[in-house]
Write a protein that binds this DNA or RNA. Structure first.
Length: 485
DNA sequence: AGATATCCCC
């Protein structure tokens, strides 16, 4: 006997026409229209609900064993905005012999999730099955490597790229460069860059942004110059990176020229480019230009507000920085992040607002749920130090979960100098030299403090010890307790 | 079936 359920289903398939607004069927005399190809329908889905119906049809009609049909389902679930990665994974697991197209799709989808290592696992599985990774595999595997930071399997993948002869593919090289940039290996990044025979904009952008993000402003600017020399037109992405390099290196003239270029070329100043411009002007002293550009921005995110607030802070405009901070939360409804608090706290430092700073520091965690990082402690130490509250500053450092760094200790040392606290300074210098044995600057500070106090014997002793190459004889120092503070 | 950018303590 036949299967009644299936017959029923066949006689009355679910209504594709209402789903996809295809033409109404011509009445009676003509043969009934063929149902559209299921795999093609999978591409036209707009929701998981629709896709599940198609998937069901595929299972019922046995087409799910056709790799092409299955891959359409996997593609939709894995990549579409209205898809569902877990569903894709389930379907993928049922496929007996997935082809490289499916692996590429899954790797691409997994690369941008919170679990990018899964993409690399899939890549390894793919190779084990004897499938050949190609130019649609590596860009996504490398993207996964970038997102896996600080874990960095990029070098191994690079070896595979060479093995499969894809080291000249633009998108693959782009991935390699980005991999090396995130882990700060600009030497390797540069090498990959130099080996590309025909450098398209994409490649320039990757390496310029890499230099900018690794604080190598001069290299970024030099490459930008070289790029223009070769007749390439920079994009908004290029200019954002270059402006960031201008901001950090104090290249106001170059920044202004870029601004003019943007206007002349009619390049759209959106969120990111706008923020980069504001930051560039703010860091280069043109705070009012920065402010008027900021006010004209149509869209602003946390980074935009941060750039403006931090800019006001370093220029000593604490009141305006606070106002903006309030406006950001109350009117714009943009959530502050840890960088915002660096800005607000440094506004307190530059204006000497001890009480306000204390309150903001406490509110960070209690009200906004942002755990203070070393930068915030740094601001507080600076603020307390300037106010002469050295004991409180030391107590704050001792209570930190993270290790004190030289920047933070440097702020404390300067406070010791300002308030003539030699005992604490000796302690701090010891710690700093433990972190940075060749930091000669701290000897000078301590020596000057001894001199200010008239302790000439100590000045001479210190001088002798500097010649010996170590501060072993500073009071309280012994080589065995160097690890302790 | 491909990617890229902005904000952070002395």
């Amino acid at each position: 006997m036949f299967q009644p359920k299936l017959r029923l289903f066949k006689r009355q398939p679910f209504n594709f026409r209402t789903l996809f607004h295809t033409q109404k069927s011509t009445p009676s005399l003509l043969p009934p229209p063929k149902p559209p190809h299921l795999s093609l329908l999978a591409d036209k889905c707009t929701s998981m609900n629709q896709l599940k119906q198609i998937h069901a049809q595929m299972i019922v009609s046995d087409r799910i064993h056709d790799n092409y049909a299955a891959s359409r389902v996997v593609s939709f679930c894995a990549l579409s905005d209205s898809g569902n990665l877990n569903y894709a994974l389930k379907v993928f697991d049922t496929i007996h012999e997935p082809n490289s197209f499916m692996f590429n799709t899954m790797i691409r989808a997994q690369a941008s999730t919170s679990n990018p290592f899964e993409a690399i696992t899939l890549y390894i599985k793919m190779k084990k099955l004897g499938l050949i990774p190609g130019k649609h595999t590596f860009p996504f595997v490398l993207k996964a490597c970038v997102n896996c930071y600080p874990l960095n399997p990029g070098k191994q993948i690079h070896a595979d790229v060479m093995k499969f002869g894809l080291e000249l593919d633009l998108y693959v090289v782009n991935g390699l460069i980005r991999c090396y940039c995130v882990c700060g290996d600009m030497h390797a990044a540069r090498k990959s860059f130099e080996e590309v025979p025909e450098r398209k904009l994409l490649i320039w952008n990757a390496v310029i942004s890499g230099y900018a993000q690794n604080f190598c402003s001069n290299e970024a600017l030099a490459l930008f110059d070289q790029m223009l020399g070769e007749g390439l037109e920079p994009s908004g992405a290029t200019l954002s990176s270059v402006l960031s390099a201008c901001a950090r290196s104090g290249s106001l003239e170059m920044g202004k020229q870029i601004h003019v270029y943007i206007k002349e070329k009619g390049i759209e100043v959106g969120l990111i480019l706008g923020t980069a411009l504001v930051d560039m002007y703010a860091k280069n002293g043109e705070i009012s230009v920065a402010r008027s550009l900021f006010d004209k921005m149509l869209e602003r995110n946390t980074a935009s507000w941060n750039a403006m607030i931090c800019g006001l802070a370093v220029h000593g405009h604490a009141e305006e920085a606070f106002q903006l901070f309030q406006e950001m939360m109350d009117k714009a409804k943009i959530a502050p992040n840890n960088v915002t608090f660096v800005g607000v706290l440094s506004a307190c430092c530059h204006a000497g607002l001890l009480e306000a700073g204390r309150g903001i520091f406490l509110s960070m965690e209690r009200v906004y749920g942002i755990e203070p990082k070393i930068e915030h402690y740094g601001c507080m130490v600076d603020l307390l130090g300037r106010g002469g509250k050295l004991a409180e500053a030391e107590e704050l450092i001792n209570g930190m979960v993270c290790e004190a760094d030289v920047v933070l200790l440097g702020a404390l040392l300067r406070a010791c100098k300002d308030h003539g606290n030699i005992k604490l300074a000796e302690k701090v210098v010891r710690k700093m030299l433990h972190l940075e044995p060749q930091n000669h600057g701290v000897y000078i500070v301590l020596s000057n403090m001894y001199a200010d106090a008239g302790s000439w014997a100590d000045v001479l002793r210190l001088r002798e010890e500097m010649k010996d190459g170590g501060l072993k004889k500073i009071p309280g120092w012994s080589s065995t307790d160097g690890n302790k503070y």
